[in-house]
Design a protein around this nucleic acid. Structure first.
Lengths: 252, 252
DNA sequence: CGGCTAATTGACTTTCTTCAATCAGTGTGG
DNA sequence: CCACACTGATTGAAGAAAGTCAATTAGCCG
C-alpha cells in the first residue's frame, strides 16, 4: 500500500475566491454561510497521486471536500482483492462516514495530485446548530452519493460486462462534463485499466477485452488517457440506460 | 408489478410509547426532541406484503421510518432485471433520497405487512433549523446506510457466490439480532430464494445451488423461513470476513 | 385432489478468471 | 543514442464460475 505524502498548506485560497463556486451545478451561498464556511475551512491538504489519505479502520478527525483532482473510495479484502466504490471529483465531499460514525470503513486514494479543503469534525456541531441549510446540504451530498452507489450496485449485480463498462465510462464523462473538465469533447481519465477493472468488479484481462469490444463500436474512444464520447446515444444504448443528472444543491 | 394496498391510519401509537425506543441500539431522546418528533410524525402507514409503496421516478412527499416488518429497496432495468439494493428493518429510515433530492431513484417494496411512521417533507426544514441533533441523526442514518451498501458492493464486485451468500445471511442475522428479532437462535427471513438471488446479483438457479452447498457446511441452517446461525465463526470464515456492527446513534 | 408457488436438479452454453506470454511506451544510465 | 528496466496494455488458451433451459419435486391451500 502506498501511503505517500499529504502536506498541509497553512495559507490557502479563501472561500470567497473558491473556483468551484462559479460552477453552475452548485448553489450560491448566502453571505453568512460564506462567512461561516470561511472559518470552518481550517486548511488545505495536498496529496500526491497514488497516495491514500484516509484509511479503513482509522478515526477521522476531519471532513474534506475535493478542490481539485481525482480520487477514489475503495475497500480491500484480506487477500488483496480490491473494490473501488466510487470516484471523487472536485466539489465532492470525502470522509463524512469517518466524521459521523467513529471509524472509516473504507479508504480513499488520490488518482492525481489532489487538493482538499479541510474541515474540523469538532466544528461540525456548530455547523448543524447554526446553519441548518448547510447541514441540509451535507445530507443532500450523502443522499446523492448513495444514489451513485446504488446505480453502481445495479451495474455489478445485474449488468453485463459490456453494459457496465459503457455505463461507467458514460457516468464519468458526464460528471467530468458537469465540472467543466471536458475540453474539446475529451476528458482526461487519470487511471489505468486496473482501476477500471477494480471499479467494474471484473478481472483485468476481461476488462481489457470488454473495453476493446466497446471501443470497436466507435461510440466512445479512449486513447492515451483521453476519453471521448463520440455518440452518447449509442453509448447509452449499449449501457442499457443513460446516466441521470442531479439538480444542483451544493456544499462548497 | 404489484402495487397493492397502502392504508393511512389516522390514529396511531404516540412516539412516547414507541416500542423501538427501548432498543439498546438506539439513543435516548431528550424531552424536547421527543416533543418535536411526536408532532413531526403525522401518520402511520400500513403496507401489505408484496406491495411497493415508493416508486422510482416518483416525487416523494414524505419521509418514513420502519416501525415493524421487513422491506427492501430495489432498482429495475428496462428488461426486467432487478437488483435489490438493501433490506430495511425496524428503525431504518426510508425515502430520504426522495425527500432530499426531488425524485426517488429506486423503489421500495414490503416483504411482510409493514408499518411505517410518516413524516412530512414540509417540516423537514423545521427539524433542521430547530433540532440540529435530530438533523445530525438523519445524516448519521444516511452515512450508515451508505456503509451497508459499500459492503454489499464489495460482495457483488469481489466476493465469490459462496462468500457473498454467507456474508448476506450473516449480515441479515446480525441485524435482526440487534433488533431482538431472533428467537431461540432463529430469525424468520420473510423472503424467497428469488429475493436472495436479486440481492446477491446471481441467477435463481445458481443461488439455489450455492445455498445448498452453504447449508451443507452446517454453519447455518435455513428451513422453511427460519434462519439459524449455528457457527458464526465458521460462517464468517466462509464469508471471508465478519460483519461489523455500528455504534448506536438513532432517529426514532 | 387439483392448482399454484417455491425449491431442486441435470444438461448445456456462455461469461469470466487465471495463467502465461508478448508487446508498447517511458524513463534512466552509460 | 541505445540497452535495460519497469509499468501498463494485449493476447491466446484452458479451466472455473455462473447463466439458461427444461423438467421435476415439495409444500401449501381451498
Amino acid at each position: 500500500m502506498i501511503v505517500g505524502n499529504a502536506r498541509p498548506n497553512g495559507h490557502f485560497t479563501p472561500c470567497e475566491q473558491c473556483p468551484l463556486r462559479a460552477l453552475p451545478c452548485l448553489r450560491e451561498f448566502t453571505a453568512s454561510e460564506l462567512e461561516f464556511v470561511k472559518q470552518f475551512k481550517i486548511d488545505e491538504l495536498h496529496v500526491d497521486a497514488g497516495a491514500s489519505f484516509l484509511h479503513e479502520g482509522a478515526r477521522a478527525e476531519h471532513l474534506y471536500t475535493v478542490l481539485s483532482g481525482w480520487a477514489f473510495r475503495y475497500k480491500m479484502l484480506d487477500d488483496g482483492r480490491r473494490q473501488i466504490l466510487n470516484f471523487a471529483l472536485p466539489a465532492d465531499m470525502v470522509g463524512l462516514q469517518g466524521t459521523v460514525m467513529n471509524e472509516m470503513e473504507h479508504s480513499v486514494e488520490a488518482l492525481t495530485p489532489l487538493t482538499l479543503c479541510v474541515f474540523p469534525r469538532a466544528k461540525l456541531y456548530e455547523l448543524y446548530s447554526q446553519f441548518p441549510t448547510l447541514a441540509f446540504d451535507i445530507t443532500w451530498l450523502a443522499a446523492r452519493e448513495e444514489q451513485l452507489i446504488d446505480e453502481h450496485l445495479v451495474s455489478l449485480g445485474r449488468r453485463t460486462a459490456m453494459e457496465r463498462t459503457a455505463f461507467l465510462l458514460l457516468h464519468l464523462f458526464v460528471r467530468a462534463q458537469e465540472l467543466g473538465m471536458v475540453k474539446d469533447g475529451v476528458c482526461q481519465l487519470p487511471f489505468t485499466q486496473q482501476h477500471l477493472a477494480d471499479a467494474l468488479g471484473l478481472s483485468l484481462v476481461h476488462t481489457n477485452k470488454t473495453l476493446k469490444r466497446l471501443l470497436a463500436t466507435k461510440a466512445v474512444s479512449w486513447k492515451g488517457r483521453g476519453l471521448e464520447v463520440r455518440d452518447r446515444a449509442a453509448l447509452a444504448a449499449i449501457a442499457g440506460s443513460d446516466v441521470s443528472l442531479h439538480k444542483p444543491r451544493p456544499f462548497i
